[in-house]
Design a protein around this nucleic acid. Structure first.
Length: 247
DNA sequence: CGTTAGCCCTGCTGGC
DNA sequence: TGCCAGCAGGGCTAAC
């Protein structure tokens, strides 16, 4: 345990006790949470937030990046999993088996699941007066969409980020549901967005940042119509969009 | 209930 | 060059 904040609000001793000697039976993901299924029935859950980074060291902890190193998980076969996080926003915690159902139920549906259809999105949006951008970032409505992907999906769908969520037409809702799926699929295919320090578990950068159409491109010409990309704040989050293409 | 502002963190950027 | 205010962002809590 190198940084107790990485497991807060749990006590480091309790966290270690619940993990020590356990076997990992499987890996899963839900929303932005990484899930390690333990042989105790509990789950080790890790959220990287913005700057968190997991690195897999297959044979020994040798060569591990000590900078911003918060946690080092040591495996019986001498493999190690390092958790580095410059911003100290990321968290690891033990989710007890009996609390798991309630925990995951707080999250909305997975946009890439077959059951997530345009009609399903329409029902979720129904009656909501908040800006569509805020809605997309709300993990209890939709799981896994972050600021980058919300901006890019809204641009792709041609929808203004401030539009009231419940007032999208069926056609716009269909465009948005397709845009969310396509944006996430492309980002996954390119192994994520390395805006700052993001690296995957093998240390590789993502490639999606090179495809941004509007995100972090304030003042640059819209790739569709050349109108300068605008930046506003929506729900406290920086939001980039094309004022001409997104209505 | 649904929604929102403020807070947590620290590296980086931009203005002076 | 150096200083420092402000920004970035996901999710939680408190407040409306």
């Amino acid at each position: 345990m190198l940084d107790p904040l990485a497991v807060a609000p749990a006590k480091p001793a309790v966290f270690i006790h619940k993990l020590k000697g356990r076997k990992i039976l499987g890996l899963q993901r839900r929303g932005k949470y990484l899930i390690f299924e333990l042989d105790s029935g509990d789950f080790l859950v890790i959220h990287l937030r913005m700057t968190g980074r997991l690195t897999w060291l297959k044979h020994s902890p040798e060569g591990v990046d000590r900078k911003y190193l918060r946690l080092l998980f040591k495996f019986g076969n001498r493999a190690n999993l390092a958790f580095n996080d410059s911003r100290r926003f990321g968290r690891a915690f033990i989710l007890p088996a009996d609390a798991a159902g309630a925990f995951w139920n707080r999250l909305g549906p997975e946009p890439l699941e077959r059951s997530f259809t345009s009609a399903r999105l329409g029902r979720l949006l129904e009656g909501s007066g908040r800006p569509i951008k805020s809605f997309l970032l709300d993990q209890s409505k939709l799981a896994g969409v972050g600021n980058i992907y919300a901006d890019e999906a809204l641009f792709s769908a041609g929808i203004h980020p401030l539009r009231p969520a419940g007032r999208l037409s069926p056609r716009e809702t269909a465009r948005l549901s397709r845009a969310i799926k396509a944006t996430l699929r492309q980002a996954i295919a390119l192994k994520g967005s390395s805006v700052g320090t993001y690296r995957d578990a093998r240390g590789a950068r993502g490639g999606f940042q090179d495809t941004f159409k509007v995100h972090r491109r304030e003042g640059e010409p819209c790739p569709r119509c050349r109108t300068p990309v605008q930046k506003i704040r929506v729900g406290g989050r920086g939001t980039c969009f094309c004022p001409s293409c997104q209505k």
